[in-house]
């Protein structure tokens, strides 16, 4: 699995993603936002961070980067694209995923471990999880409050495009378990084709037991497995 980790000025989870891809046997390469071309890559990863200092809106400036044209054509041709945290915000701003991530309803930056439930495992990104599995994954964001117009939100649910949802330890999606005010506790969504995934929690920070959780590993082994490379 040859993976491009796109790096923007202000990305800060790029090394974590690079390391996560390597840990599952992937061949990872950093691709600077000013570079062009993604030929030969099997997957594209957009890391978390604060691209362009979150100026204007989180992800709004990064999505105008030259490489984003290539990310868009890569995604449109069915290539797997994963955006985490700021990466998710960039995917929404770029129109590769619907909706937007607004300020947390608490107005506070939330940096802690949360529980999320795997809503479907019939995807390239989640095949190594079981449906309904509850994961403990860290979050670290100030703008993770997922919002879209009513028609879009209804379509996301009707089409099963909510991939991860904030839940409590027992797997119930309660209001208390929602760290940012997201509609229907949405933590991660996919596009209609299922090849673009955006999520606020950080699976790349849950890769080693010494760091608190290994619940993120299966996301990367799923990708590596689906992209026909043994781990």
């Amino acid at each position: 699995m040859k993976v491009a980790v796109i790096t923007f000025p202000g990305s800060n989870c790029d090394y974590d993603l690079y390391k996560a891809a390597q840990q599952v046997g992937g061949d990872a390469t950093f691709v600077w936002h000013r570079e062009r071309g993604l030929a030969g890559y099997d997957a594209v990863l957009l890391p978390g961070g604060f691209s362009y200092g979150d100026y204007l809106r989180a992800g709004a400036i990064a999505r105008m980067s030259p490489i984003m044209e290539d990310v868009t054509s890569f995604a449109n041709s069915g290539g797997p694209v994963l955006g985490i945290c700021n990466g998710f915000q960039i995917l929404c701003e770029a129109g590769l995923l619907p909706g937007a991530l607004m300020r947390n309803s608490s107005l506070k930056f939330q940096g802690k471990d949360v529980f999320i439930r795997v809503e479907r495992n019939d995807m390239l990104f989640t095949s190594d999880y079981t449906e309904g599995q509850v994961l403990r994954i860290p979050i670290a964001h100030g703008e993770g409050n997922y919002e879209a117009d009513t028609a879009t939100l209804e379509a996301l649910e009707a089409e099963g495009r909510v991939v991860f949802r904030y839940v409590d330890a027992s797997g119930e999606s309660t209001e208390d378990a929602n760290p940012n005010g997201s509609w229907h506790n949405i933590a991660g969504i996919t596009n209609a084709k299922g090849n673009v995934l955006g999520m606020m929690p950080h699976p790349e920070r849950a890769m080693e037991s010494i760091l608190g959780s290994t619940d993120g590993v299966a996301l990367f082994t799923s990708m590596a497995g689906s992209l026909s490379l043994s781990t």
Partner: peptide, 8 residues
Amino acid sequence: KLLANPVT
């Protein structure tokens, strides 16, 4: 194109 996000 840039200054406003039509969703929000």
